[in-house]
Design a protein around this nucleic acid. Structure first.
Length: 365
DNA sequence: ATGATTTGACCGAC
DNA sequence: GTCGGTCAAATCAT
């Protein structure tokens, strides 16, 4: 690749990094933020233009899809812009969360590492996910909820896995009885990679259905752990570059009323951050000075199709645990570094698994 | 081993 | 009876 193009990309990265590290101090400077974002977008856009100019003859999947390079370029700009604004929103959320934590440090406490897993509060019925809880724990809790819940969405069943057998009685709410919100979002892409629709929640896809009369299937997603919210994503038939996203139900996975909707990616067996970590360090590279290129790349892979942590990361948006991570740091770090590794999580969060003690039942499942 | 996604089947709503 | 939402086993990815 041409050196000038690389320096443009580098410039964009640097600008983004500068903006990132100053985010906490810029919350009341919308004009400056806007200008900074524009400058970053300009740098990336110029780089993309140069790349496209130099590779005009090569195959481009977007062209096969009937799109112009111009629209692709603007998509990239929109994608970068969306990432920046999303990161900013999350950073501000974290700022609020930390303010809250400083006010009441007991809100952000770590659970003893031997007590990991998922439990359900006998009083409130709220599900408590502890650091280190596994996917199996989630499945088990979901199953037991079905067993015990006799009203609402689920009905009692004799056996947790009797779903399809004779005793199964799934009751469903009428569609029009559930609050629905529809938004249209662009199906963003960079190159041939789909940029997921990121709405600051972590979703789990649980169904895909071919819809009669529609070329594209409808995907259904649920929020994690007892949150009632659902969303359906479907590509518009007359405009494949637009996704129709329908939201049903209300989120119950906000961290608190004071810290609204911070997407809270949770890394496996990751130590939760201490409330004493200064915000400026959360948002800067300084927080994890030893992270290698390889680490960053793997963490990029952890971001799932909805822009939130996935893969080994497990569930997030845990309402009652105030589990927080560093989306800005991680995503930016992942963006600004490259490489590959198969074992990077251990490098990022070293020795947690070594600290498990034998016979820990919450881990054996 | 663990967790996410896919996919065929079930079953309620219409 | 049809459609589509949901479940859960199977499969895939890490």
């Amino acid at each position: 690749m041409e050196e000038e193009t690389l320096s443009l990309i580098f410039k964009g990265c640097k600008l983004a990094r500068d903006l990132e590290s100053n985010l906490p101090y810029l919350s009341n400077q919308p004009k400056f933020l806007s200008n900074s974002c524009d400058e970053i977008i300009r740098a990336f856009k110029m780089a993309v233009d140069r790349i496209n100019t130099h590779n005009a003859s090569s195959y481009d999947p977007h062209m096969a899809f009937g799109e112009s390079r111009e629209s692709q370029t603007s998509e990239i700009a929109v994608g970068v812009h969306e990432w920046l604004t999303s990161s900013f929103t999350q950073a501000m959320g974290l700022l609020q969360a930390q303010t809250l934590a400083e006010r009441n440090p007991y809100d952000v406490q770590l659970l003893p590492k031997r007590k990991m897993g998922i439990t359900e509060s006998p009083e409130s019925g709220a599900i408590v996910i502890e650091s280190g809880a596994t996917y199996r724990d989630y499945v088990n809790v979901e199953g037991s909820k079905r067993l015990r819940s006799s009203g609402g969405e689920f009905q009692a069943m004799d056996e947790p896995d009797s779903g399809r057998s004779s005793g199964s009685q799934r009751s469903r709410k009428r569609k029009d009885s559930v609050e629905k919100q529809t938004v249209m979002v662009p199906a963003l892409r960079i190159g041939n990679t789909e940029i997921p629709h990121n709405d600051d929640f972590t979703w789990r896809k649980y169904g895909q259905k071919d819809i009669l009369g529609s070329k594209f299937p409808r995907c259904t997603h649920k929020n994690f752990y007892g949150c009632e919210a659902k969303k359906q994503v479907q590509r518009l038939e007359d405009d494949p570059n637009t996704l129709e996203v329908n939201y049903y139900g209300k989120h119950s996975c906000h961290m608190s009323s004071m810290a609204p909707c911070v997407t809270v990616p949770v890394a496996p067996r990751a130590p939760l951050p201490s409330a004493s970590i200064p915000m400026s360090r959360w948002l800067s590279m300084e927080f994890e000075p030893s992270i290698s290129r390889e680490d960053a790349n793997t963490r990029m892979q952890m971001y799932n199709e909805f822009g939130c942590i996935s893969g080994a990361a497990g569930p997030s948006n845990v309402r009652d645990r105030k589990e927080v991570e560093y989306p800005v740091v991680n995503l930016a770090d992942a963006m600004f570094n490259s490489g590959s590794s198969s074992n990077s999580l251990d490098a990022i969060f070293p020795s947690m698994k070594d600290k498990w003690e034998p016979g820990d039942k919450s881990r054996d499942n």
